[in-house]
Amino acid sequence: MSNILHILNGDATLGGFEQTGLEGNVMVWREALSEGPVSKNVSSADFWEKRSEFICKAFDETPEHYHDRMIVHLEKLNEPYHEINLWFEYDLHCQINLLGAMMLLEQQTNLSAPAIYLICPAEFPGIENFGGMGELNGGQLEYLYDTIRVQLGKYDFTLATQAWNLYVSHNAEALKVWLDETLFWGNLHQLKLAMQAHLKRLQVNENGLNYIHQKLLDIYKSGITNKHEIYSAFWQTEKIYGMGDSELDIYLSYLAHRGYILER
């Protein structure tokens, strides 16, 4: 068994990663913790039961498929690695998944054993409108590993725990205070922007709509009513959320249910 584990942010990165010469076992984090029920104890059976229920309902998944693609792989974290590398990006989707992975490691791993590193690119040299690590080949991923990889320390895990606890609390005021008062972000360089984006989801306007609902509604009202064109228009300005079609559909369905739009 290798002494190194790489946790990848999704299947899009796996193809490129398999082209690298990097040693180690691989675990793909196939979750979307930025949507649906979450709680403080990520290592509990109840946490993953609720996630399975949500994922199966929201994304037309089966419990067996979710179990095989996500739950089974969590067992890898019980193995005695000397080094764990977390490959996650800057957007809210990835940052919340990163927090979840860090909480799981902290709650069920002896952190004095493995060195834990983060590879978290917000851009890539020579690539305009960088869309994420799924665009990169093996050589480019090795470049990130060699140039931006940072070792996470005790402060980073303290900060991540604070962020996670605020995330699961759904308390906009407490999150705003924390964002205003936190002046040093350690090695979690992308966390502040992501949590600021999340704050905008917690705040609702007089119509009961949050920032994403209102943004999608404005796009719809501008005359863009085809779903895929709505996605594209949203992504042009809101890459920070890192949402795919299925996640945006949750918000569009809410707008349709409220009678704001006609779903197509």
Score class of each variant (00 low, 15 high):
residue 114 P to W: 00
residue 50 K to L: 14
residue 182 T to I: 05
residue 91 D to G: 12
residue 64 E to D: 11
residue 137 N to L: 01
residue 195 M to R: 09
residue 165 N to P: 07
residue 151 Q to K: 11
residue 162 Q to L: 12
residue 52 S to H: 02
residue 29 W to Q: 13
residue 144 L to N: 06
residue 81 Y to W: 07
residue 205 N to D: 15
residue 83 E to L: 10
residue 105 L to T: 00
residue 168 V to K: 05
residue 205 N to T: 13
residue 243 M to Q: 12
residue 39 S to T: 08
residue 203 Q to A: 09
residue 196 Q to D: 14
residue 109 T to M: 04
residue 169 S to M: 09
residue 54 F to C: 01
residue 12 A to L: 13
residue 231 Y to W: 11
residue 11 D to G: 04
residue 69 R to Q: 15
residue 222 S to W: 13
residue 183 L to P: 06
residue 126 G to I: 10
residue 199 L to Y: 03
residue 72 V to R: 15
residue 230 I to F: 01
residue 81 Y to L: 13
residue 13 T to H: 03
residue 210 N to F: 14
residue 178 W to M: 01
residue 225 T to W: 04
residue 124 F to H: 11
residue 81 Y to K: 14
residue 160 A to M: 03
residue 119 I to F: 07
residue 130 F to M: 14
residue 125 P to C: 02
residue 143 Y to F: 14
residue 69 R to D: 13
residue 213 H to L: 01
residue 106 E to N: 11
residue 116 I to R: 01
residue 56 C to G: 04
residue 45 A to Q: 07
residue 209 L to K: 13
residue 12 A to F: 12
residue 129 N to T: 12
residue 198 H to W: 13
residue 188 L to Q: 13
residue 73 H to E: 15
residue 2 S to A: 10
residue 42 V to I: 14
residue 104 L to V: 09
residue 198 H to I: 07
residue 22 L to S: 06
residue 25 N to K: 14
residue 185 W to R: 07
residue 74 L to S: 02
residue 263 E to C: 01
residue 192 K to A: 04
residue 78 N to E: 08
residue 40 K to A: 14
residue 54 F to E: 02
residue 235 W to I: 04
residue 222 S to K: 11
residue 73 H to T: 09
residue 58 A to F: 00
residue 87 W to K: 06
residue 110 N to T: 09
residue 237 T to F: 02
residue 60 D to H: 02
residue 77 L to W: 01
residue 26 V to N: 14
residue 118 L to Y: 08
residue 5 L to D: 15
residue 86 L to H: 00
residue 120 C to Q: 13
residue 242 G to P: 03
residue 200 K to G: 11
residue 53 E to N: 00
residue 191 L to F: 10
residue 4 I to D: 05
residue 100 G to K: 06
residue 252 L to A: 04
residue 20 T to E: 06
residue 64 E to W: 05
residue 185 W to G: 10
residue 83 E to N: 11
residue 74 L to C: 06
residue 210 N to C: 14
residue 31 E to G: 10
residue 150 V to I: 12
residue 24 G to C: 09
residue 77 L to T: 05
residue 21 G to N: 15
residue 199 L to A: 05
residue 32 A to N: 09
residue 63 P to F: 00
residue 163 A to L: 04
residue 227 K to V: 00
residue 31 E to W: 07
residue 32 A to T: 12
residue 79 E to S: 07
residue 113 A to N: 09
residue 193 L to Q: 06
residue 220 Y to M: 00
residue 102 M to V: 12
residue 77 L to F: 10
residue 108 Q to H: 09
residue 109 T to G: 03
residue 84 I to N: 12
residue 175 L to D: 15
residue 64 E to I: 04
residue 151 Q to H: 08
residue 78 N to T: 11
residue 82 H to Q: 07
residue 232 S to R: 12
residue 174 A to R: 02
residue 200 K to P: 06
residue 125 P to N: 02
residue 176 K to I: 06
residue 28 V to G: 11
residue 10 G to L: 07
residue 188 L to P: 10
residue 4 I to P: 03
residue 247 E to L: 10
residue 20 T to A: 05
residue 126 G to F: 07
residue 36 G to C: 02
residue 119 I to Q: 11
residue 131 G to E: 08
residue 263 E to R: 06
